[in-house]
Nucleic acid binder design. Structure first.
Length: 154
DNA sequence: GCCAACGTTGGC
DNA sequence: GCCAACGTTGGC
């Protein structure tokens, strides 16, 4: 089993929204970055655990945990001209973009802030804290996962 | 809202 | 294949 971190903007879709979904499950669609796509398509497996990270908001950090319940499959929003994720250059034959389904596990009592994450030397290798990194789907090492869970404190 | 840093596009 | 221009990300 592997660990991951998914970024999301809580104003659009946050962990509270995931919790409220039927079955507490949702498609993680709209990822339009090739490196992140490769993780979604090739490496993220059912049963993997995921930190849900809130970005572009007034409480930036890790908000909780989810689990992958369906492995990579084609993201249909790329074919929908009405979708903001529409990609006119993608085709049904050779789709560009993939997604997984994630299920809510729990929401931390408080968001584990980016500031705290940056302050911990054990987490210095995470892409998340490296300057200019914009990956929205990234791997988390097992040791980092444990450290982060302890810091979250519940 | 600002702006640095990044990934993508497209002309050549 | 190069690289300037552009649009986006995301912390602050």
């Amino acid at each position: 089993m592997s660990y991951w971190l998914f970024k999301t903007e809580p104003d659009v879709f946050g962990i509270a929204d995931l919790k409220k979904r039927p079955n507490q499950t949702e498609h993680w669609d709209g990822v339009r970055n090739y490196q992140a796509r490769n993780f979604l398509r090739d490496e993220i497996k059912q049963g993997d655990k995921v930190f849900i990270y809130h970005s572009s908001c007034d409480n930036v950090g890790i908000a909780g945990v989810a689990e992958v319940v369906r492995e990579g499959y084609v993201d249909p929003s790329q074919f929908d001209p009405e979708s903001k994720y529409y990609d006119p250059k993608s085709s049904m034959d050779t789709p560009r973009w993939y997604m997984v389904d994630v299920k809510f596990i729990r929401q931390f009592k408080r968001v584990l802030s980016l500031k705290e994450i940056k302050a911990n030397p054990a987490l210095a290798e995470m892409p998340l804290v490296q300057k200019g990194n914009r990956l929205s789907v990234m791997p988390v090492k097992a040791a980092e996962w444990q450290v982060l869970l302890q810091m979250a404190g519940d």
